[in-house]
């Protein structure tokens, strides 16, 4: 079985939502630009303090919304709060960015749009870390981790099966 097949099997076994496992904190050798913490967004950006990703959630119809908005676009419900999610998802698409957009962030690094398992189309722009570019692909199962920037905890994603745990599995791709 290739790594990719193994990842799909693993994803299938773990896609049941509702199970929350704290994501690791991820320490980086550079500093990220901290987002402004506003009434609308602070609960998202600070959620990772306890290792749990929280996403804006309509308590009327159950739909998750990201980026956070005070009204649910599906049912126009006003009871939108931040609720924990599993932190698991798959790579919807990705790119290896080589341009230095932010003075403090040295390229190259992986940028990805990650679709969370909780809801089709529920996607977060993010970075995939702890993953060689040769390994990332559309559909790769990933798990959240957090990098601190000021008072914010920036949600990043690692492969659900980190490279270190796959070593010795006999897969030539690694």
């Amino acid at each position: 079985m290739t790594t990719r097949q193994a990842e799909h099997v693993e994803a299938a076994e773990h896609t049941a939502a509702g199970e929350v496992e704290p994501g690791q904190s991820w320490v980086e050798g550079f500093s990220r630009v901290a987002p402004p913490l506003t009434e609308r967004t602070a609960p998202f950006w600070t959620s990772g303090a306890d290792g749990v990703l929280r996403i804006a959630h309509c308590r009327d119809c159950g739909r998750y919304l990201h980026p956070p908005r005070p009204v649910c676009p599906a049912c126009r419900g006003r009871d939108v709060g931040f609720d924990p999610v599993s932190g698991r998802g798959t790579v919807w698409s990705w790119t290896l960015n080589r341009y230095q957009w932010v003075p403090s962030m040295p390229p190259p690094y992986l940028v990805a749009d990650v679709e969370l398992v909780e809801q089709p189309g529920l996607r977060l722009l993010t970075n995939v870390v702890d993953c060689p570019p040769e390994r990332i692909h559309v559909g790769l199962p990933v798990r959240v981790c957090f990098s601190q920037a000021g008072d914010a905890y920036i949600p990043l994603f690692r492969p659900a099966s980190p490279a270190s745990e796959l070593r010795g599995a006999g897969d030539a791709r690694e």
Binding site: P35, W92, S93, T95, N97, V111, A149, A152
Partner: peptide, 26 residues
């Protein structure tokens, strides 16, 4: 942060080409 949009990209070092790149990659 000139626009609401940028807070969802700048902490991740995302520039405009990254969005088009992800469409190309798919």
């Amino acid at each position: 942060f000139g626009r609401e949009l940028t807070q969802w990209s700048t902490p991740f070092g995302i520039g405009y080409p990254c969005y088009a790149a992800m469409e190309m990659q798919r």
